[in-house]
Amino acid sequence: MATSIRGRGGIGPALPLLTPAYLWLVVAIFLPLSAMALFSFMTELPMSGRDWSLTLEHYAAFFSSGLYVTLLWASIRLGLEVTLWCAIIGFPAAYVLARVLKGRAREAIFLLVILPFWSNGLVRIFSWAMVLREGGLLDTTLNAILPFRIDIDLMYSYPAVIIGLVHSYVPYMVLTCYLTLQAIDNALIEAARSLGASRLQTLRRVVLPLAMPGLLAGSVLIFVPVVGSFMEPRILGGRTGTFYGTVIEDQFVAVFNWPLGAALSFILLAVVLVILSLSAPILRRVQ
C-alpha cells in the first residue's frame, strides 16, 4: 500500500532526470540500430551523392551466395563450442567456489576469476599469441620436457581461436553459475544425501537442475558475443579465422559496401534478438 502511494501516475516529475540519459541512448544506440535496418534495404548510401533506391538485393545475396550462410553457421558453431568449453571449465570451478571454499579465500578467488574480465579483451587475446606461436612458451616448454622434438604452432589455427575466446568468456560462466550455486540451500543437498543419494546422483538430480538457470544465463551471455566476434579470429586465427564477424568488419573497413554490411549486421541482430528473447525469462530469474 505504502509504495503504491509514492509518486502519482504521470511521468512528468521524472522527466528532467530521465530525459538526458535516455535521449543519449536513443541517439547513440536506438536510432543507429534503426538506421542500420533502413540502410540494409538501400542500393547506395544516401549521403554518397549517388542515386539510391530500395532493394532486397543484400538479403538476396546473403541467402543465394551460400558463403554468408556458411560463415554464419561457422560462427554459430564457434559460439556453441566456446560455450560448451566454458561450461565444462567454468561450472566445476563455480561449484568449488560456492560450496567448498569459504570466507576470505572465496572472496579473493572469486575476485581473481572475474578480474580479467574487466581488463582489455584485445590485449588478453594478444597475450595468447606469445604462448601459442612457434617458439612461444608452449612450444619451448614442451620441447624442454619431452625427450623427442615436436613442433607446436597453434597460432593461426581454429584451436587458437577457441582457446582465446574461452579465455575471454569463461569468467561469465563462473559468475552466473556461482550466483545460482551459492543460493542453493545446503539443507537440500544434505536432505538428498540423507535419503541415500550418492554424490553423483545428488549432483545430477538436485544441484544441476537448481543451477540450470545460471548455466543457461552464462551460455547466452557467452554465445551472443562470440557469434559476433571478429577481433579474436583475426588475431589468433589468421587465414583460418574467417567468420561471420570478420566478413561484416570487411564490409565496413575494407570493401566499403556498407549497405551489405548493414544487412549482414541486421541478420546477426535478428539471430541475437531471437536468442535473447527466448532466454529473457531465464535471465530475469538469475537477476
Binding site: A28, P32, L33, P225, S229, S265
Partner: peptide, 15 residues
C-alpha cells in the same frame, strides 16, 4: 547484450 560489432557498425552508419 547486443554484440558491440552490431552496435559499432550501426553507430558508424548513423553518425
Amino acid at each position: 547484450a547486443i554484440p558491440w560489432l552490431i552496435t559499432g557498425t550501426a553507430m558508424l552508419i548513423f553518425f
